[in-house]
């Protein structure tokens, strides 16, 4: 029996849906799946985890309560739980939170870790990931007593498979961290999180100014999409850095990426090329993105986007 641990991420008490692809990737014959929940569990979460085939739900606590959030304490607790249950493989999401936890866990266990995997084979201990700004795909093999993989959010399709799960508690012993969490500052970027979004509308140089981004926000609202931006739009100060997609911004894998007035540099593609579908709207038919997308519209985005918003609104009603 191969025991696989999955570090579950929650947001406002709900399991982020990107976890479900990670659980799907973990399943396999002769495997027992342990989901680690760091900030308590409720029945809804249990239902979700059962629907995707988790066998054991581990509530990681200290004394009798969830461990106060601290990336060092949480990482210590997860590695202790892995050792306690005899789990040698850990999967998690390679988003912002995973980037702050998985490498800490790997470093604590002195174990190999591959971040941002687009595919994994847990029997062979191999993972695929892009390198060199998305220009190559590497197949990497981890060797050692433990194997850790951070999965790119949305890279692996979630498929349900019901399994009754037991809830168990694990009490961790938290040592001094050397790091104190002082404050959480809420962001100004409203709405849907880029790395979680199914649909992203992104704007680039073609948006021309900050005000015009409201066109994208309006349209995004109709489909529950997140709004992203190219480096140009961020460097010009039109939108905050938190919205930047690309080499020096966020890496995203939505189902649909609608690029508006974005030329499509290598650096931009590094952040969004694994989108399942790319739709490009650009008045320059020669823009690089028009040759690297699924659908392109060679027209003025200031005509197309309002028309799209209107059509989406009509469809919703």
């Amino acid at each position: 029996m191969q025991k696989i641990g999955i570090l579950i991420e929650t947001k406002e008490g709900e399991i982020k849906k990107t976890n479900l692809g990670v659980i799907t990737a973990a399943r396999g014959d002769g495997r027992e799946l342990y989901a680690f929940l760091m900030d308590g569990i409720n029945d809804d979460q249990k239902d979700v985890l059962q629907s995707y085939g988790v066998h054991k739900i581990v509530e990681v606590i200290s004394e009798d309560a969830p461990i106060d959030y601290n990336p060092v304490s949480w990482s210590q607790a997860v590695s202790q739980a892995m050792v306690h249950f005899g789990i040698n493989t850990l999967l998690g999401l390679a988003g912002i939170q995973g980037q702050n936890l998985l490498p800490r866990i790997a470093a604590g266990l002195n174990a190999p870790l591959v971040m941002d995997c687009s595919a994994i084979d847990l029997a062979a201990h191999t993972a695929q990931k892009s390198q060199f700004s998305g220009r190559t795909i590497a197949t990497l093999k981890t060797k050692g007593n433990f194997h850790l993989y951070g999965i790119r959010p949305n890279a692996i399709e979630a498929l349900p498979a019901f399994c009754r799960a037991d809830v168990v508690s694990f009490q961790a012993e938290i040592k001094k961290a050397g790091l104190t969490v002082k404050e959480l500052k809420q962001g100004d970027a409203s709405g849907v999180d880029l790395t979680e979004a199914d649909v992203i509308l992104a704007g680039g140089r073609g948006l021309e100014n900050s005000e015009n981004f409201s066109l994208l926000f309006e349209c995004a609202q109709m489909v529950g999409a997140a709004v992203g931006a190219s480096r140009v739009a961020v460097d010009e100060g039109w939108v905050p850095y938190a919205m930047q997609v690309g080499q020096t911004g966020k890496t995203v894998s939505p189902k649909v990426y609608i690029a508006c007035g974005i030329s499509g540099s290598v650096q931009h593609f590094a952040g969004m090329k694994t989108a399942a579908m790319i739709i490009a709207i650009n008045k320059d038919p020669e823009a690089a993105i028009m040759k690297r997308c699924d659908y392109f519209v060679a027209a003025d985005l200031f005509e197309i986007i309002p028309a799209l918003s209107a059509r989406l609104k009509a469809t919703a009603n």
Binding site: N110, A111, P112, L113, V114, T126, S130, Q131, G134, R135, T136, I137, A138, T139, L140, K141, T142, K143, G144, N145, F146, H147, K273, I278, A280, M290, K291, R292, C293, D294, Y295, F296, V297, A298, A299, E303, I304, P306, A307, L308, A310, R311, L312
Partner: peptide, 28 residues
Amino acid sequence: GRVEILELKPAAEKRQPKELTGTPDEVA
């Protein structure tokens, strides 16, 4: 532990772009 590179491949470009044409509303 360690991480070994088993294989490195160029990222494949699988997309075949199709153009959408018409008036803005038809495109929408």
